[in-house]
């Protein structure tokens, strides 16, 4: 039987650009260039490797996001995923982590799955909680923050490097996995991959396709509210000296002045 893998990927504002908030204090996704979250590329990569090692597998990439989020799906398809699902609905604007996990869980169930693979965190919200929330909603094991992952005979195994210890984990499928940026470099799309991606199916679903009411998601349905966002004042320019043989001593002098020595 075929192994059905769903990879959740997020379209995020480019971290090297000038990220900011829109007037309603949601992340501005219009005025900045977006891209497939780099941390989700690792999820796509592991999904492709697991699929390559399975007899028969299908990789579906799933995103929730505005029209432009299709770019993220295209990138994942050009890396080698088989098909894509785009959940798009104006009422989704401003959805928080709890709401996102609801929509993802419903879409994953509708798509059908044996294995869900997510990134360790989105590069814009950086919460790192959506995979755990999706596992809770689906009622399946969470095998998260893996630096190493493999799937064999319906069992997923992996290594989770925590603060206090490095742990070996194991669970039966179906399961939700998330992988870190230590899990292995993500491949670049080949020219052939980019051409092939143009012909791969991208399905669009809205809230009604998922039996979700508008009130359950979006800014109004959110469980949290950002009340203020202020830009951090630029750090005041410091002293910069060129080392002409005394740089270390000058630095020591500064540190002593600040009472660090």
């Amino acid at each position: 039987m075929s192994l059905r893998i769903v990879v959740t990927v997020k379209y995020v504002p480019d971290a090297t650009g000038d990220r900011h908030f829109a007037d309603d204090l949601t992340v501005d996704r219009d005025d900045v260039d977006g891209l497939l979250s780099e941390l989700d590329e690792y999820a796509v990569e592991q999904a492709l490797q697991i699929a390559e090692n399975a007899d028969d597998a299908e990789v579906t990439v799933l995103t929730i996001g505005p029209e432009d989020a299709k770019d993220a799906l295209r990138k994942a398809l050009s890396m080698g995923a088989d098909k894509a699902i785009h959940v798009e609905d104006d009422d989704l604007h401003g959805t928080d982590a709890i709401g996102t996990s609801l929509v993802l869980a419903k879409a994953i169930e509708k798509a059908g799955y044996d294995l869900v693979i997510s990134g360790m965190a989105s590069t814009d919200g950086t919460m790192g909680v959506v995979p755990a929330l999706v596992a809770e909603r689906l009622g399946v094991p969470q095998v998260t923050l893996l630096s190493e992952v493999s799937v064999e005979d319906g069992t997923v195994k992996g290594r989770r490097d925590g603060d206090a210890a490095s742990e070996q984990l194991e669970a039966q499928l179906p399961a939700v996995v998330s992988v870190t940026d230590q899990s292995g470099e993500a491949r670049y799309p080949s020219f052939k991959g980019i051409m092939a991606a143009k012909k791969k199916p991208v399905q669009s679903w809205d809230l009604s396709d998922l039996d979700i009411e508008a009130e359950e998601v979006g800014l109004d349905g959110a469980f949290t509210k950002v009340e203020a966002a202020t830009e951090r004042p630029a750090r005041t320019a410091g002293t910069i000296v060129k080392d002409e043989g005394e740089g270390g001593k000058q630095l020591a002098e500064f540190l002593a002045g600040q009472k660090f020595i």
């Binding site: 750090r235 410091g238 002293t239 910069i240 000296v241 060129k242 080392d243 043989g245 005394e246 740089g247 270390g248 001593k249 000058q250 630095l251 020591a252 500064f254 540190l255 002593a256 600040q258 020595i261």
Partner: peptide, 28 residues
């Protein structure tokens, strides 16, 4: 990184860091 610093040394860390370490040792 120099945009963020309160104090910066433009130089080779292999010269600056050991000198700093020595100087701290002396001062202590």
């Amino acid at each position: 990184i120099f945009e963020l610093v309160d104090f910066g040394v433009v130089g080779d860390l292999f010269d600056v860091v050991p000198q700093l370490t020595e100087e701290i040792k002396t001062r202590k």
